[in-house]
Amino acid sequence: MSFVRPLTLWQKAIIYTLLLLGVAAFLTPFLWMVSTALKPLRETMSFPPKWIPSEWQWGNFHRAMIEMGPFWRYLGNTLIICFLSVAGTVMSSALAAYGFARIRWRGRDTVFLIVLATMMIPFPVIMVPIYTLFRELSWTGTFRPLWVPCFLAGAFNVFLLRQFFMTIPQELSEAARIDGCSEWGIFWRVVLPLSRPALLVVALFQFMFSWNDFLGPLIYLTDQQDYTLALGLQSFQSKSGGTSWNLLMAASTLIAVPVIVLFFFTQKSFVEGIATTGSKG
């Protein structure tokens, strides 16, 4: 909470202590991943772990990129899918969320419960019909099954944005309406600018999902040149040949770092940006 009164030294000390306790728990997986990435194979997976490799194997990153397959090609594919997915998700779910949050129409709340219900269907039982559908459209083997659905407003994002849209005071819409704004105008000029943090959250989540999604590309892509980074990670896991843990972790680090950097910068803008402009309240 951004409380108004400045914190006393004691309060600060308590908060820092609590936060630092958490850091130990949340940083461990990351440190372990990076340290494994820098080890020779023989030293990986020794438990309890040796945190410092006997020899720093910086070459693992390069080897991992080579063994994964065409790394830059995978990166390009992943970025294309992420870009289209994020664009589609933000646009379509903002529209739909507005329809559920800011316009009172008959039956709205009942239909909204259907939105919620769609998230409860266990995925395995609808996987086959959905696959068959994309197959009928001749979309298997293309990126389309991975991004086109994002343009059709997924329930999670609609729900999330609706919750935020509903906190925007109704008077703002009314004022715009009196100024002659259409419903579209209110959406575009009032609600969207005020919801930047929430839109960023939705965009970030979708990006992370598409970036790390493994199942979708696994099922739909049938050409190695179309593979994504998350799918490329699988090249290090093998049933009988052994897993190259150090390369797997090096590749994982390469894949995780961009998202971590992205998160670092976006969280600043969606948490701090809005507080300083003070657009609300």
């Binding site: 996987m127 086959v128 696959y131 068959t132 994309f134 197959r135 298997t140 083997g141 696994l218 099922i219 049938t222 050409d223 190695q224 799918l231 699988q234 090249s235 896991q237």
Partner: peptide, 21 residues
């Protein structure tokens, strides 16, 4: 040659969908 992880699942869907290798 296409390396495929979790081949059982992918193959199952591809055969069911009429799109096998």
């Amino acid at each position: 040659y296409l390396p495929v992880s979790q081949i059982d699942r992918k193959l199952l869907l591809a055969i069911a969908g009429g799109n096998p290798p």
